[in-house]
Simulated scan of single mutants.
Amino acid sequence: MANFVLVAGARLGAWAWDEVVPYLRAAGQGAHPLTLSGLADKAGVPAGQQTHVQDIVDEVEDRDLRDVVLVGHSYSGIPVGQAAERIGDRLAHVVFVDSSLPADGEAFVSAWPDGGAMVKASIAENGGFWPLVTAAHYDGQGLTDEQIARIVAGSTPHPGATLTEPAVLSRPLDELPATYIQCLLAGAGPGSGVAELLTGKHWRLVDMDTGHWPMFSRPRELAQIFLQAAGE
């Protein structure tokens, strides 16, 4: 049995996986949606980048999970990628869902065209948090009005330090057994770093004809990709 540890992107919590979890469990697999510190039901808990990495490692170790498939969506690909190399032989696979990837010494905002200046300014103006976005932010992503309303209602401001503090990697990402899911409606394809990793023997690419939040727009299809990645 695989154990899927599911980590959603910025501003989201474990609740974002509510429609994916039943498909995984119906297939006889373990599903462990995780809320990172400072978000959703853990709002108010101080968090930096390494806090989020430790959240994931603790979930795996405290539950004594084996055959773990770590899933990171959007921002959460950064802490998931770091946690993957820290859980040793418990790891079976990593799935990056239209996500950022960690680079040693680099932060989430490092990849932004302005070096993250606008994000950092927004965080400074909002008490140390990346603020919420309006419903219009989700237009054109294959989501219904009801799904957008649900995302907006459930979102919480994101702890800014997790976006500006650097990732810490001890070995290359290309050594991880990984699947990268590209959501085609999200616009630009995988960056050069992802493209390079996909040339290696351990990584593969899967396209989804939907937007950046497939756990809402295509939960059944997404769960099936997860199961295939785990070899189920």
Rank of each mutant, 00 (worst) to 15 (best):
M1F: 09
A2I: 11
N3M: 06
N3H: 03
L6P: 00
A8Q: 09
G9Y: 05
A10H: 02
L12G: 00
L12W: 06
A16G: 01
W17N: 09
W17Y: 14
D18V: 02
E19R: 15
E19C: 07
V21T: 13
G28V: 01
Q29G: 10
G30D: 04
A31N: 09
H32V: 05
L34P: 02
G38P: 03
A40E: 14
A40N: 11
G44C: 08
H52K: 08
V53E: 00
Q54M: 08
V57E: 09
D62G: 15
D62R: 15
R63Q: 15
D64M: 09
R66G: 13
D67S: 00
V69H: 05
V69D: 01
L70R: 09
V71D: 12
S74T: 06
G77Q: 03
I78E: 13
P79C: 12
P79V: 14
P79F: 13
Q82W: 02
A83N: 05
A84Y: 01
R86Y: 02
G88I: 10
R90H: 04
L91C: 04
V95L: 10
V95F: 10
P102H: 07
D104E: 07
G105Q: 02
A107L: 05
V109Q: 05
A111W: 06
P113G: 03
P113N: 05
P113C: 03
D114H: 06
G115T: 09
V119W: 02
K120E: 08
A124P: 00
A124F: 00
E125Q: 15
G127W: 01
G128A: 00
L132D: 12
A136L: 12
A136M: 14
Q141W: 07
D145E: 11
D145G: 12
Q147V: 02
A149F: 00
R150P: 09
V152N: 06
S155Y: 02
H158S: 04
H158L: 09
P159C: 02
L163D: 00
P166E: 08
A167F: 02
L169P: 01
D174A: 14
L176N: 09
A178L: 05
T179S: 10
C183G: 08
L185I: 04
A186S: 15
G187Y: 10
G189P: 04
G191L: 00
G193A: 03
L197K: 05
K201L: 13
H202L: 08
H202K: 14
H202M: 11
L205W: 08
D209C: 11
G211Y: 01
G211V: 04
H212I: 02
W213I: 14
P214Y: 11
M215G: 11
R218G: 01
I225T: 15
L227Q: 04
L227W: 11
Q228H: 15
A229F: 10
